[in-house]
Amino acid sequence: MADIVQSLCVPSSYKDQQYRGSTTDLEKDLANSTTLYVGNLSFYTTEEQIYELFSKCGEIKRIIMGLDKFQKTPCGFCFVEYYHHQDALDCMKYVNTTKLDERIIRTDLDPGYRDGRQYGRGRSGGQVRDEYRQDYDQGRGGWGHVRAKQLEAQRAHRQKEEYEAITTIPTGAGEYKGKSAASSQQHHKRERPDDEEKETQGREKNPRFREDRSDDEDEMQTDV
């Protein structure tokens, strides 16, 4: 109704780089869109929670969870598709920038889901924003990937600096003397958590993830 303030139900300035079509096509798609992109979700937020919140604006046709390209686990975004355009608009007005799972989520009108868009496009498999993120975010796997690598490099460097080779060998250690050099090197290696360890850190157990019950991770695909 009001024209002197900007409506909240307009698409943001984001343009999907992989969208195939002209700007006019995009405009047309968005003008009738029933699909929303939802971002800044916690990795732990379940589909049911999303369903519960977003169904307040209208009946949901389907939810497509955004998945890590390699691990096929939720990586903090999803698509919500309604039956009616108006419901998607209402969602922009009422749900955008509210909190779900104690995080402020972001919604945006979307030209429509296509197969393949459910995967993160970051180098490490998740979303690009998690690649370059500088802060620590527990709900999204801790540090951003690039930052995590930097921190790790710093830590390793520092450790190397502060590392002092044992110069005075305590008495009684004589019998191990021969092995000491080799063992200290091994020690050094073990201290530094290598890629393997980091991987498991990033993949902390998700308590709300019902993976124990079945094994078909790729069910999210919509092979209608």
Binding site: S13, T23, E27, G66, F77, R106, V128, R129
Partner: peptide
């Protein structure tokens, strides 16, 4: 789909898009 906030590459295009269409 991502929202590369830190990614400056698209800035120019984004401006154009915003100015022309959804104003």
């Amino acid at each position: 789909m991502d929202y590369p906030r830190g990614n400056r590459r698209n800035e120019g295009e984004r401006k154009k898009y915003r100015g022309k269409t959804f104003q």
